[in-house]
């Protein structure tokens, strides 16, 4: 995980064959510039970045479902719960499950655990839009390789 550049996922562990669920992992680094401010002398993972990690987990699942034809953009965060502090060096298991896929949007429930104990959870809604012109899609594909996303199974492009 490199939270200072929003790389919140280290590895896609598994995608359910029905494309309803995903499991990812992310190790909070021992050192990161985000801890300079959050907090000086007491480094803990910012809650907004835990939500971002859950959003990225869901994002990989949405990309698998649409075979990288469109990009999910986070639109709504509901029922977000941040249950306990997450410290440098801790390894998060991140899960997401699709609640509903509508026309141009996806709703998912997502959560993270630490050694099996619940850390945070939320219900997230994404707009699913055509890729913006420019470099975004190739960059996301590159990140997919970095997180061991099974591109051969899910990407046509």
């Amino acid at each position: 995980m490199r939270p200072e550049v929003f790389k919140m996922i280290d590895r896609v562990v598994a995608i359910d064959p029905s494309l309803q669920k995903i499991h990812c992992q992310g190790m909070v680094p021992e050192e990161s510039s985000i801890f300079e401010g959050h907090f000086p002398g007491y480094p803990i993972m910012p809650g907004v970045l835990l939500i971002e990690a859950m959003a990225q987990t869901t994002g990989w699942l949405v990309l698998a479902r649409n075979r990288f034809e469109k990009m999910p953009f986070l639109a709504t965060v509901k029922e977000a719960k941040l249950r306990t502090f997450v410290l440098p060096g801790q390894n998060l298991d991140l899960y997401s499950e699709i609640l509903h896929e509508g026309s141009g949007f996806v709703v998912a429930k997502t959560n993270a655990t630490l050694e099996g104990k619940p850390i945070c959870s939320a219900e997230l809604t994404f707009r699913v839009l055509p890729w913006p012109e420019g470099k975004m899609k190739p960059v996301v594909m590159k990140v997919a390789e970095y997180v061991s996303f099974p591109l051969a199974d899910f990407a046509d492009a």
Binding site: A75, T76, H100, G102, S103, F105, V107, T125, R127
Partner: peptide, 13 residues
């Protein structure tokens, strides 16, 4: 449009 996503979700369901 954002609220309409919630409405569409509820209508779909």
């Amino acid at each position: 449009s954002l609220d309409f996503l919630d409405i569409a979700f509820a209508i779909d369901k």
